[in-house]
């Protein structure tokens, strides 16, 4: 028996928005420790890694490990039926071929039950080693989304260069070029407005704007985003999901031959 309850269904809606741009279907692996999802986009250029800890749920029970393959378009249809203030409970029996979603309004005046068929998906998990990154940039998530959107107008790729002075985003194409430099903030009142750079070595890498823009669909989940970079390894873009967990995106760089 699996059961997971979240008082704020809005969080699950936002998680789904954050992954459905990159993935059409995915397997939710449920265990005693929580819900995990790891999947690559079709082109195997980016990877989504979602971790929702069991202790972050308002109620959580998972007697046996369970892998639930879901069509994310169909899951989105169902989650759209939940009111923003509703509580959501996901339930499945052991070895079930369906998952149930129950939405309850405040005071339980309205209770809606939906069932969705599960799918058997071929899973290709990647082993991602613990990495000490040369540069870790923490910045407001809205600022990152804005930069990705703005630079996408200039070219398909954007370079991210990090030094101890700051982080520079640049793009170039037919219409011209764009450069945005962010300095580390000296002192800010609100922690989420800060730009913080931890640098061991300067790094400059180039990435496809299309994927970065997809990652920014997670912006509503967190006020801050963390970019981790090292020479010649994929970029990691991480959004914390409150006390519940995190979503990480991995993106392979582009190289010039």
């Amino acid at each position: 028996m699996f059961e997971a309850r979240l008082v704020q269904s809005a969080i699950l809606k936002k998680v789904l928005e954050a992954i459905k741009d990159l993935l059409t279907e995915a397997t939710f692996d449920c265990s005693d420790s929580g819900i995990q999802l790891q999947a690559m986009d079709n082109a195997h250029v980016s990877l989504v890694s979602l971790n929702l800890r069991s202790d972050g749920f308002d109620k959580y029970r998972c007697d046996r490990n369970l892998s639930m393959g879901m069509n994310l378009g169909n899951m989105t249809k169902i989650m759209k039926c939940a009111g923003a203030e509703d509580t959501v409970t996901m339930k499945a029996q052991d070895n079930a071929d369906v998952v149930a979603f129950m939405f309850e309004s405040k005071n339980q005046e309205k209770v809606s039950d939906y069932e969705m068929k599960l799918m058997n998906l071929d899973q290709e998990h990647l082993g991602i080693p613990e990495t000490d990154y040369s540069c870790i940039v923490k910045m407001p998530s809205q600022e990152f989304a804005r930069i990705c959107r703005d630079l996408s107008q200039f070219g398909e790729s954007m370079a991210i260069s990090c030094t101890k002075e700051g982080v520079k985003f640049s793009s170039a194409g037919d219409i011209g070029s764009a450069n945005i430099k962010l300095a580390q903030t000296a002192n800010v009142d609100a922690e989420e407005e800060a730009v913080v750079i931890e640098m061991q070595e300067p790094v400059s890498l180039t990435f496809a704007c299309r994927y970065l823009n997809s990652f920014t669909k997670a912006t509503p989940l967190s006020a801050q985003v963390q970019l981790s970079m090292s020479a010649d390894v994929p970029l990691v873009v991480e959004y914390k999901i409150g006390e519940l967990g995190h979503i990480r995106y991995y993106l392979a760089p582009k190289i010039e031959d």
């Binding site: 082109a43 991995y250 392979a252 582009k254």
Partner: peptide, 14 residues
């Protein structure tokens, strides 16, 4: 020429 690399060029399929 700019080449888009893939994740499997960095990580092993577990």
């Amino acid at each position: 020429i700019v080449t888009q690399l893939r994740l499997c060029q960095y990580y092993i399929v577990a």
